[in-house]
Design a protein around this nucleic acid. Structure first.
Length: 468
RNA sequence: GCCUCCGUAGCUCAGUUGGUUAGAGCACAUGACUGUUAAUCAUGGGGUCUUAGGUUCAAGUCCUAAUGGGGGCGCCA
């Protein structure tokens, strides 16, 4: 038996498994459940390659009783046996065990995972073990597939993968609070004469932070390679306690020379639809599981998104719709305000019942680098709003005029010298260009139907929590 | 950061207007059953009711604080 090739369980659920029926197969994996009677045990085994378990059938006369007792939920075993068509209902094939080796026990009195009834909140407290559950196996396989599809999408369309730095010296990117990066001894910080920390002695000779966005450096990529995208971790030190925020999350930021705001919207919509369709095509078993267990509307919602055009609407018209709606909002609506969650949700979930791209926001509520419209009041921003999740994409056409951009920076009290490298894109060979940022975990919320962003990343980072 | 709700067995939860010895399912142990599908059936072990104060003849239940978790809001992706 020693020479049998190990099969991953996913291969036993493919159409060509018939070729293996009758032959000896070696399976390795973790026990999900064991059940049976005094003659025979049925072991559901999973190796992570698929959500499906292979049923191991063990005639008890062939196996040592103490070995069988140690085969409990969570234990890791190797099984050699003959693959046969199943006599029972519920599975097509099963493995008639000939030899079982126990790799690792899992004491059922202390192993936290059981075969039923765990809340997502409880699993969050044992995040190091939760990938072994059906739910997190499904979510994390989908996560991988989405990451792969993102690279494939851009590669197939001539985009280059661009790595913006994670450590940045610009402490005013404007997108949120930043984590400081330092090698100074915090118990004994070297001080200058004015009693402030002497960052000349720090690792980089100045104060540095973890990036809140790769966009500014991404624009340098677009101004050279034409079309680039970043896909990497991003850090926000905001004290955000919501099911939609993480302190460490992954973001995809494409940036394209010669794209205007319409090209940008077209790309964003096509990109999301591609990813959702990719999930439907390639993560069928996992999505069907999530649809069955958590959200019966999940598949319908995914199919709806890929088959309907997103509504595109200027901010000003959105304000009109909200004002005319007669809906009672907690925060009253007026032009110039930043839309609240309740307003976005009304537009997406009740008025249009469809993803919405809002454009042309007031410049006061958007970032300095967005292209200014002729009206002097609005900028060519675009936010893609999704049901339940809210803003899944934020982007814009960029202001390429050196004069307009630096004027806006002065209005916002930003120091030009801190951005000299960025402003070189406008000094030398400036070009119209656009880009956006897609929150990877927010995309995953939509694709998996999970409700809390802490459940779509293996090890979530959020205020007061960096365990695991 | 603000506002709310919750914390009872390893897990999921019930526990009435405050009243004797705090219950159920799953898990675990023992036994039964010739193929199970969250297997089933019987029996059994398992509790500092988050923690610390307080009210009361009496607190799982009421009050205060701490702590952990959920939801809503803000910040945003």
């Amino acid at each position: 038996m020693d020479t049998i090739k190990r099969e991953e369980i996913v291969n036993l659920f493919k159409d060509n498994v018939k070729e293996l029926i009758g032959s000896d197969v070696r399976i390795k994996g973790w026990v999900r459940t064991k059940r049976g009677n005094k003659n025979v045990s049925f072991i559901a085994l999973n190796d992570g390659s698929t959500i499906n378990n292979i049923q191991i059938v063990a005639e008890l006369t062939n196996f040592d009783e103490t070995l069988m007792k140690k085969i409990t939920t969570g234990a890791c075993i190797r099984v050699d046996g003959k693959l046969v068509e199943s006599m029972g209902q519920g599975q097509n094939v099963e493995l008639q065990a000939k030899e079982i080796e126990l790799y690792g026990e899992a004491d059922p009195n202390t192993y936290p995972l059981q075969k039923k009834g765990h809340s997502l909140e409880f699993l969050r407290e044992i995040a190091h073990l939760r990938p072994r559950t059906n739910t997190f196996g499904a979510v994390l396989r989908i996560r991988h597939n989405m990451a792969f599809a993102i690279h494939k999408y851009f590669n197939d369309r001539g985009f280059f993968y661009w790595n913006s730095p994670l450590i940045t010296a610009s402490d005013c990117e404007g997108a949120g609070e930043m984590f400081q990066v330092t090698t100074l001894n915090l118990d004994n910080v070297p001080l200058k004469d004015d009693k402030k920390a002497d960052y000349n002695q720090d690792f980089f000779g100045k104060s540095t932070f973890l990036t809140v966005s790769g966009q500014l450096e991404g624009e340098l990529g677009a101004m050279s390679l034409g079309k680039i995208y970043t896909f990497g971790p991003t850090f926000r030190a905001e004290n955000s306690n919501t099911p939609r925020h993480l302190a460490e999350f992954w973001m995809i930021e494409p940036e394209m020379a010669f794209y205007d705001i319409t090209d940008n919207m077209d790309l964003a919509e096509d990109f999301i639809k591609y990813l959702v369709q990719y999930a439907l095509d390639n993560c069928k078993d996992d999505i069907e599981f999530l649809n069955k267990m958590y959200d019966n509307e999940l598949i319908n919602r995914l199919q709806f998104v890929v088959s309907h055009s997103f509504v595109r609407l200027p901010y000003t018209k959105a304000i009109d719709i909200l004002l005319e709606s007669k809906h009672k909002f907690d925060v009253p609506v007026s032009w110039g305000m930043d839309l609240q969650s309740e307003h976005e949700r009304f537009l997406v979930e009740q008025h249009f019942k469809c993803p919405v791209i809002l454009t042309d926001y007031p410049k006061e509520i958007k970032a300095f680098y967005m292209k200014q419209n002729e009206d002097g009041k609005t900028v060519r921003a675009m936010d893609v709003l999704f049901p339940e999740i809210g803003e899944i994409i934020g982007g814009s056409e960029r202001e390429e005029s050196f004069e307009k951009l630096t004027k806006r920076m002065k209005e916002l009290d930003m120091k030009e010298e801190n951005y000299s490298w960025y402003l070189d894109t406008r000094r030398f060979g400036a070009a119209p260009h656009s880009g956006f940022g897609l929150g990877f975990e927010r995309l995953l919320l939509f694709v998996t139907g999970m409700a809390n962003i802490r459940d779509v990343i293996p090890f979530p980072r959020f205020p007061k929590n960096a365990t695991f």
